[in-house]
Amino acid sequence: MNKKMQLLSRRNFVSGIGATALAAPSIVNAQALDGVTRNVAAFRPHQWQDHFETIGKGILLADTGSRFLQHWTADGEMRTYPTSVPLSEDLTRLGYTEVIDKKVAPGWGPTPSMLERNPDWPAYIQGGDPRNPLGSHALYLSWQYYRIHGTQDTRKIGRKSSNGCIGLFNEQIEEVFGRTPIGTQVKLL
């Protein structure tokens, strides 16, 4: 088959898939009936008004189920970011908090419970060290030990992989960091 015929065949195939998806959207969005979970995006955007009375200085809404962060600035602009979330429910803290501090190249030390689970971990890792799990920037929350931060390990994004924090790609936490003043409202759900 020549290149032109292959291209046409691919186009016909792709357009056929698109037509099927339009005609039967339940096929595209359906989970498997046989109990096997398919790779279907679980993200459904939230409205900030369903969670907060005012937008104030801004809002960070982290959905641990869909593994996405929605960020509204004080002027109402909203952006979304894929995240990593805590490994298990016992490491997950849900509810309302706020940003109380911001650091570029934050240092990191494991919490006492992390050291209990992983006694071989170092007591402290300097900011900028490629082993530092906080990545390039961190937003410190009013809950002790909880952060929204970057990560050096990009494989973690979109997965249950943290010890309680919400992680973003370094490039994206840098953007969120620059647009998030101290006092920004936060909710983890």
Rank of each mutant, 00 (worst) to 15 (best):
R67C: 08
T64P: 04
L115P: 05
Y96P: 01
D50T: 07
Y96L: 10
W121S: 05
R11A: 14
A138W: 06
A19C: 02
G35P: 10
I182L: 00
I182M: 03
R155C: 08
G164N: 03
G127A: 08
W143A: 09
P110H: 04
C165H: 01
V85S: 00
K156R: 12
G16L: 03
L69Y: 00
D75L: 01
A19T: 12
H71F: 03
H137A: 09
E175G: 03
L60E: 00
M1N: 07
T111E: 09
R147A: 09
G109N: 14
G127Y: 07
P122T: 06
S161A: 15
P112N: 08
I17A: 12
I27G: 12
L115M: 14
S26Y: 10
G76A: 05
V40A: 06
G128S: 05
A74R: 11
N12S: 13
G178Y: 04
L60N: 00
N39M: 09
L134Q: 04
W108K: 07
N132V: 02
P122G: 04
T180S: 04
I182T: 09
F177Y: 15
A123E: 14
T154N: 13
L115H: 06
S142E: 08
F43L: 02
Y146A: 00
Y145M: 05
E175W: 13
M5H: 13
K102V: 07
L134H: 02
G128M: 00
R93M: 14
R10Q: 12
Q144A: 15
G56K: 06
Q70G: 09
P86C: 03
K103Y: 01
D120Q: 15
H149T: 01
P122E: 07
S142R: 13
G76V: 04
M78P: 02
A21L: 13
E116H: 11
F52Q: 05
M5D: 14
D50W: 05
Y124N: 12
P119Y: 06
Q49F: 08
T180P: 06
H137E: 01
E77V: 14
E171V: 08
L33C: 11
L33A: 15
A23Y: 10
V28N: 06
W121T: 02
N132K: 03
W48A: 13
S66V: 06
N39H: 13
A105R: 10
P82S: 05
E53Y: 11
A42N: 10
C165K: 00
R147K: 12
G16Q: 06
D120I: 06
E116V: 12
T80R: 13
G167E: 11
I157D: 03
S88N: 09
N118D: 14
V40C: 02
T184F: 04
D75G: 05
Q70N: 08
W121Y: 10
F52H: 05
W121N: 06
W72P: 00
K103F: 00
S9A: 15
Q31D: 07
N163T: 05
M114A: 11
F52E: 04
F177A: 01
P122Y: 07
R38N: 11
R155W: 10
F43E: 04
E98M: 10
P112S: 12
R11S: 14
I59C: 05
L91M: 13
T73Q: 00
R10F: 13
G164L: 03
A32C: 12
D101K: 12
H149Y: 01
A23G: 12
E171R: 10
T154Y: 11
T20K: 15
N170S: 02
N2T: 11
Q144L: 14
D153V: 08
G56S: 14
T92F: 03
L189A: 13
R117H: 01
P119I: 03
N163E: 12
